Every structure is written in C-alpha cells, then in structure tokens.
Simulated scan of single mutants.
Amino acid sequence: MEFILLGFADIPHLQWFLFGLFLIIYIIILMSNGTIFLITKIDPALQSPVYFFLANFSFLEICFVTATLPRMLMNLGTQRRRISLVACATQMCFFLLFGGTECLLLAVLAYYRYVAICNPLNYPLVVNRRVCIQLVTGSWTIGIPLMIVQTYQIFSLPFCGSNQIDHFFCDILPVLKLACGDTFVNMMLVYTIALLFVMVPFLWILGSYSKIMCIILKLSSATSRAKAFSTCSSHLMVVVLFFGSAIITYLRPNTRHSEGTGKMLSLFYTILTPIFNPMIYCLRNKDVIMALRKLLCK
C-alpha cells in the first residue's frame, strides 16, 4: 500500500545541508521563472510570439520542479520517507507529463529560432499568434494519454517484494525494479516513449541549430558572429545537459549499474536545468532586462 523513498538516506550526515541547498534552489526556480512569467504577461513590449513561448516555458519549469522537489524537501526535513501507492503514481504521472512537455517545448523554441534566423522574411507568416497557440497547446496535451497509460500499466503490476525505492522521487525504472511480474512490455513502452519524447526532439534541436550555425558562419560582422555563437552555444549547453542525462537514464541498456549514478543523472534534468533555463533563455535578453527594471522601479 506504500513505498519508502530512500532518497539520500545513505548520507545521513548531509540531510540538513541538502535540505537547505535544495530549498534555496527551489525558491530561486520559483522566483526567477515566476518573475519571467509575470513580466511577459503585464509588459506591452513583451507580447510577441517568442515571449509567449517563454512564458509557457517558465510556467512549465515551475510545474516540473514542483512535481518532485517539495516531496524531496519534506522527506529530508521530516525523515518520514513513506509515500502511498496513489501518491507515487500521481507523482510519476505528473513528472512524465511535465518532462515530456518540456522536451517538446524545447524543440518548439529551436524551431522558432530556426525560422527567425534562417527564414526571417516568412517569420511573421510562419510564427503567428494562431500557430504559437497550436504549438504550445500540442506540446502540453499530446503526451497526456501516453503518460497516463504508461503510469497505469506500471502500477497495475504486482508489488510483492521490497517496498524501498532507491530514488528521491517515483521514477519509472526504480519503481519497475520492485515489480514481481513480467516487465518486458512496460520496458518496451518506456523505450518507445523515450524515443518519441526525448530522442526525436533532441535530434530535431540539433538539426535546427546546425542550420542556424551555417547561417551564422556567413555573417560578415565578426561581432555579430561572436554574439550569435555565444547565444546558441549557451542554449545548446543546457539542451545537451537536459537531454543527455535523460537519454542516458532512460535509453541505456538494462544492465547492472550504480543506483547513485541514476540519482545523480536525474538531478541534472529535474533540478539543474530548470535553474539554468531562465538565465540562458530570458535573463540575458535586453527586452526582458528592461521590463524587469521597469517592474522593479514601479
């Protein structure tokens, strides 16, 4: 009827340090993404399609970290690591939904940037308000049935052995290890969804940025090239960090590996990238900085 999330129980002397660290990270993520979401809604200068994408992206980051971090903070603070079967299934479902949506939204942002740089004359036609709403709505909704089916299949399995999940949240692979039945079909579904929601968007992003790089190389101004390379390289760094850790976690062969490695990899795509994304995508943007200054002055 319940599981025990071991989390970081193997390092008891660092429990309060980790609690303070993750609490600070969570507050920073909420404040930075919440501020970006707020100013993109109230500032008239930030009503273009790109800021519509970034507002949705910031809201998604808040949802994504909230699916895992509050439970982890509660476990670190109270040392009560128990989680009911229903709560575990709910956490997994929302984590998968928000994670899949983030993969698709990152691909949409790459598409927007590709059109803006490689096809600027058609940009107003290709990236208009209606198309933006359709892309964002599709990113949020396309994964809902798949993630619900995935979660339902996993929690329909019998759990008759250990109830200790060696992770800090209810992730797919640690939970599947506790199942007593045949998990072949479940693993095939995990690989299929990981290919569709992780690998395909990642390859799309790499393809978009490779074409963007080709255009940048043709720029006559060295200053423009350096600025464009700086922006694209920072975007790619966060994308590779997020997708790389997710690909290694969900698409590596099912062999004996360190549980600590799995937990460390999951920290990259659940905590580190949400704290970097607002800095990389928004807080280096002059329009966002101006809007932030106006808000602070008011």
Rank of each mutant, 00 (worst) to 15 (best):
R113F: 12
S258K: 01
Y123W: 07
Y191R: 07
L272H: 08
L157S: 14
G260T: 04
S208A: 15
L60R: 02
Y111A: 05
V190H: 11
T223M: 01
V136S: 10
L46E: 05
N163D: 11
P278W: 02
N163I: 11
Y26A: 05
Q15G: 04
G143I: 13
L251H: 05
T141L: 15
F64Y: 13
F155Q: 11
A291Q: 04
K298A: 08
I133A: 07
G262V: 14
L5E: 01
A179Y: 00
L73G: 07
T90D: 03
F98I: 01
S266M: 08
T261K: 09
H13K: 15
K211G: 04
L206F: 10
F94D: 07
T68E: 09
M290S: 09
Y209M: 10
S210V: 11
M237Y: 05
F197H: 03
F268V: 14
A194M: 06
L38P: 01
P120K: 05
R130A: 06
K294L: 05
N119V: 07
L295S: 12
Y209R: 12
N254P: 07
P174S: 08
L292Q: 03
P12C: 05
S48C: 03
D182E: 02
G262A: 02
Y114N: 01
G262R: 05
R113M: 04
M74E: 11
V108K: 12
